[in-house]
Design a protein around this nucleic acid. Structure first.
Lengths: 332, 332
DNA sequence: ATCACCTATGAAAACCTTTTCATAAAAAGT
DNA sequence: ACTTTTTATGAAAAGGTTTTCATAGGTGAT
């Protein structure tokens, strides 16, 4: 691997000049530039990223943490991030938090130590305090898929309340009156907001909110199964369930089927996220779409803006959209 | 951000000693060690990765390229890679090649310039020559999901021929005789092997291989649709299709349905990959499972081994497995 | 023709580690 | 008690860039 020194020697100039040509910082005589470029090509020279980072204090990397690398949520999000990061000539460093507070914390610390220029955090378990704490440091932090009031300018998130309302209202419009709700972990802001939306929609329809109809779960497929069993045990005679994410909806679907209930004939279902899967489930899942790709892009743009010290006019709050498929039926 | 110098001053020792304590290279007196560790903690010192890289010439990063970050294939693979990479205290740098030869090449060059310690390449479009060329360089290259004879020791791949045979044989066992096959791009070794497996199975059953029954496609959902249309136009009266990956199978399913054909009643279908999706399709897709997670792990282990100059006894050729679901019916 | 001012370039410092080499002190051997 | 070996530590070099400061040569103005 050749160094700048070798290039300078071959081109017959000083290393400073080589650096100047390569970074285009200061005008260099055309003839000199030509010679340098020639030498660079001949030696297949590539600047040493370490040396460069040492002096510029920039790694050119953006760190991303995510819960579970294999979750369908992740891919789309990451794709959005990558698109804009790559365009800016930077790269992506990923670490998984495995949906545990402790490992999520480790993942972030890890990336911080790696001197990533910015950090995009998708975390479900970490308490707000941790995020707040990191945000005080000197590396820009972006939070995705979560809203933290004190970090409002760095959060890219969905209007979850509207999402919850949309889902519930859709069921109401189809004639459902006894609507259950399986929430995500209520420690998470998003879950709470979706619940609020559910409640609001009920109230708007003049219906009472009843605690029995709500079960807290964990956003995972297995959690959906457990929650459904709990719900069934209560014998509430509900005709529909609003499930706080698609992944749980998969579990719900299974458990319902095992219990001899058909979807949507016996029970209607609305999910949340519109993960790739939702479209292919049987029956295809009616759900609330989160524009994950766009949100990924937004987070990346904000990260870039923060690096330049600019404030960019990037949208941070995204609106959910009802995607009607086959898992809801009209009753009466 | 504090430096080693500040730590050394606070601890009242030289920077060499601090380095030694931190890297545990050479014994240091307990008392000194204590003082250093104290100072480190007090200053929240974190070694500068650039400076360290500059001298050790190690970045601690492993580069991974994939076709499409949002593909379901990717997540599982990456999860496997991450698990072992993270355990080794290293990190993951990802770049997407967007399934185009030119961008794939760019992605790899990009990672190389970033001085990743090793490179795990999942590429579909790149010609063997490129891979071979990079492999000559000084950074270890691992190829995943593809077999290149000259790089045999660095390839983690599936026994695709057996996979193709398994799929076809399953259909034969269910009584199918007129079996079509939608292949991946035949420029790719894996696609060719699956085709060979298909052919072999037919031969073993004493059936003739007929070119009309085979259509080449591109591994994408849309490609599956186009291929299916072509197949239908030929009016071959086939009763089953072996599709070379699940993603195309989704497109096939749609097109078949649009043409008024039911799966599996009218046409049986076998996919390949056993991507997360397959399980949730309607009807649930019978497919050939690729142990992607395990393959990701293997690639990462090989990368680590290459870094240590060791040859590890890691399995490189993986066996596919038939996963029977609901997309195949018996006939006659 | 002389002077002031650009312009292009080079020399050297700075960035922060790891690691080699040297040395002082302590331990072991005679 | 004296020499030799071991152990713990420090000083300094090396690693490859970017960037500041200095300087030589050239350009334009008077």
């Amino acid at each position: 691997m050749s160094t700048i020194k070798e290039v300078s020697r071959l081109a017959g100039v000083s290393i400073s000049t080589v650096s100047r040509v390569l970074n285009d910082t200061v005008p260099v005589a055309d003839e000199t530039k030509r010679r340098v470029l020639n030498a660079v090509q001949k030696l297949d020279y590539q600047p040493n990223a370490f040396a460069r980072g040492l002096v510029t204090n920039r790694s050119g990397g953006v760190g991303v943490t995510v819960n579970d690398l294999s979750s369908p949520y992740f891919g789309t999000l990451l794709k959005g991030v990558e698109e804009v990061i790559e365009e800016a000539g930077m790269h992506l460093i990923v670490a998984s938090g495995h949906a545990k507070a402790e490992t999520e914390r480790r993942a972030v610390e890890f990336l911080k130590q790696r001197r990533t220029d910015a950090l995009i955090i998708h975390s479900e378990e970490l308490p707000d305090a941790d995020l707040l704490n990191w945000a005080k440091g000197d590396i820009p932090i972006l939070v995705i898929g979560r809203y933290i009031a004190e970090l409002a300018k760095s959060c890219v998130y969905l209007d979850n309340e509207t999402g919850g309302r949309l889902a519930t209202r859709h069921l109401l419009e189809k004639g459902h009156r006894r609507i259950a709700h399986i929430t995500g972990p209520l420690s998470i802001h998003d879950s709470r907001e979706r619940l609020v939306g559910y409640r609001r929609a009920l109230e708007e329809a003049g219906l009472n909110y009843e605690e029995d109809f709500v079960v807290e779960a964990d956003f995972m497929e297995a959690g959906g199964q457990i929650a459904t069993k709990r719900l069934l045990e209560r014998k509430l005679d509900f005709s529909a369930i609003f499930v706080a994410n698609d992944q749980m909806a998969v579990g719900v679907l299974q458990t319902l089927r095992e219990a001899g209930l058909r979807v949507p004939e016996d029970i209607s279902l609305v999910g949340f996220d519109d993960v790739l899967l939702a479209r292919y489930l049987y029956p295809a899942l009616t759900t609330i779409r989160q524009p994950l790709f766009e949100m990924g892009q937004a987070a990346a743009k904000l990260a870039l803006a923060a690096l330049d010290g600019k404030e960019m006019g990037v949208r941070r709050k995204f609106e959910p959209e009802l995607i009607v498929r086959k898992s809801v039926t009209s009753i009466r």
